[in-house]
């Protein structure tokens, strides 16, 4: 077994520097790498380019990095629910590249799987396609989108073993599996880190080959953005 474990979040983020491009898993606040984000805040690295479907809320998730002005450029599909984000974007402090959600997923997956680029119909005829190569397939227009290139991918999984094999839970899966192996270094934090053999190989969502570093995360807040319930 090739062991991927590191002792803590500080070891996991070794090599993180100013100006790097980071992928961060999560949809809204669901399935975000909370421990790695806290460590990025503590390290106070600047001028980051962050690829993440959303930008957190004002006081949690990527909002924590925005608040300390650590992010230079944000690549996302949806950035509502964050007043500080909006302020930085409108004042020009923050560069924002809005990308259709399925395209964002595909560009991560392309990086993971060695495709230099993909064609997608999403965004054709809109400002998203401006300046991009387009091509017709079967009578329908498609836009050429390049795979992302990132230095680090920060991923949150539910369970993982020391070999880096991962299992995700519910809709916390979202972009996390697609970012594994899509950057030079993939750092995974898990709620439960187990010994090899404890996870059923049939149930594994991401094999450890896509992971460089794995650690047991701590004190998950798992904040709910919109608590909606019904009466019994």
């Amino acid at each position: 077994m090739i062991k991927k474990t590191v002792n803590n979040v500080t070891e996991a983020l070794e090599g993180v520097k100013d100006g790097m491009t980071m992928m961060l898993g999560g949809f809204g606040l669901c399935g975000i790498p909370e421990n790695s984000i806290s460590e990025l805040v503590r390290l106070n690295v600047k001028d980051l380019t962050c690829i993440s479907n959303n930008a957190g809320v004002d006081d949690f998730g990527l909002g924590l990095l925005l608040h300390k002005k650590q992010i230079k450029k944000m690549i996302s599909s949806y950035v509502g629910e964050n007043a500080e984000f909006e302020r930085q974007m409108l004042s020009g402090e923050l560069d924002v590249e809005l990308t259709p959600q399925g395209t964002l997923a595909a560009k991560c997956q392309a990086a993971q799987q060695g495709f230099p680029a993909i064609f997608t119909p999403a965004g054709y005829g809109t400002e998203v396609a401006e300046g991009k190569e387009v091509r017709e397939f079967d009578g329908k227009m498609h836009v050429l989108e390049h795979a992302y290139k990132a230095d680090f991918a920060f991923v949150k999984a539910w369970k993982g073993d020391e070999a880096g094999n991962l299992i995700f839970k519910g809709t916390a899966r979202n972009f996390n599996p697609l970012m594994c192996g899509a950057a030079t270094v993939t750092v995974v934090e898990v709620e439960e880190l187990v010994k090899p053999g404890e996870l059923d190989p049939n149930q594994i969502h991401i094999p450890g080959i896509f992971v460089q570093r794995i650690f047991q995360g701590k004190s998950y807040e798992k904040r709910i953005e919109q608590k909606t319930v019904r009466k019994k």
């Binding site: 949809f27 964002l104 519910g170 972009f175 969502h205 798992k222 904040r223 919109q226 608590k227």
Partner: peptide, 24 residues
């Protein structure tokens, strides 16, 4: 459950026969 939301980020439930998958 914080790990079970819809695209509007609202908490939801999964019905019998439901499945989860990644964004791609």
């Amino acid at each position: 459950d914080a790990d079970l939301i819809n695209a509007g980020k609202q908490t939801i439930t999964a019905l019998p026969g439901a499945s989860f998958f990644d964004s791609a």
